[in-house]
């Protein structure tokens, strides 16, 4: 009941095709750079339209080109953490975290989340004053506070040193165990994948 994907994406001469059906927990997408790992996440998030295929998560169909169905990103309830974190530069950390909070949502509140991620001391800061690891944790918190039904993580550790990435890995395990969200995780680091992933999907050219 995790991710059920059947995707075809054409880019000029090249065609990328991927079929996968995962269980719960963390699924790692691995493969050489340029093979289309990030494109898969973008298609699941609704930011990129596959040329053909079907996307279902936890049994809910988000996209089915055969039926002309393509939910816009804002209706997919996905928590996406981009490689370049994409914090809003004109908003404070607190306002970034608050951006996706849905009314009437019963999950963790902003301050509880800030404590959970160890960013409570940063709330008043602006994104440009954050280190890479801090920005990545804020991006993770912002995604989690939007009450996502699943998480998409695009190389969330690539910009971090070893100590920091160890911390974030612990956080991701905590999220998997305590929030029980299915996670699609893109990485090129074998050690990271070996530690975190419940399933590994190898993408080839």
């Amino acid at each position: 009941m995790g991710f059920d994907l059947d995707l075809t994406l054409r880019r000029g001469e090249r065609t990328m095709a991927l079929k996968l059906n995962t269980g719960p927990g963390i699924t790692a997408l691995v493969g050489a750079s340029g093979v289309g790992k990030t494109s898969v996440l973008m298609m699941v998030a609704g930011l990129l339209k596959p040329d053909a295929g079907r996307i279902a998560v936890e049994g809910q169909v988000l996209c089915d080109t055969a039926q002309g169905l393509h939910l816009p990103p804002e209706r997919r309830a996905c928590g996406m953490v981009f490689q370049d974190h994409r914090l809003f530069p004109h908003l404070s950390v607190q306002a970034n975290l608050r951006y996706g909070i849905r009314r009437g949502h019963a999950g963790m509140g902003l301050h509880e989340m800030a404590a959970f991620l160890g960013i409570a001391a940063l709330l008043k800061r602006m994104p440009r004053s954050l280190s890479g690891g801090e920005a990545q944790r804020v991006a993770l918190g912002r995604a989690l506070l939007s009450a996502p039904r699943f998480l998409l993580l695009d190389e969330p550790l690539s910009a971090l040193d070893e100590a920091r990435s160890g911390q974030i890995m612990m956080l991701i395990e905590k999220i998997r165990d305590e929030l029980a969200l299915p996670i699609l995780y893109v990485s090129h680091d074998r050690a990271e994948v070996a530690r975190l992933a419940d399933q590994v999907v190898e993408m080839g050219p």
């Binding site: 930011l47 804002e74 996406m80 994409r86 809003f88 939007s146």
Partner: peptide, 13 residues
């Protein structure tokens, strides 16, 4: 535009 994409994934139309 990548910031707009991020906003969309956070539930903003």
């Amino acid at each position: 535009p990548r910031l707009e994409q991020a906003a969309r994934t956070l539930g903003a139309g």
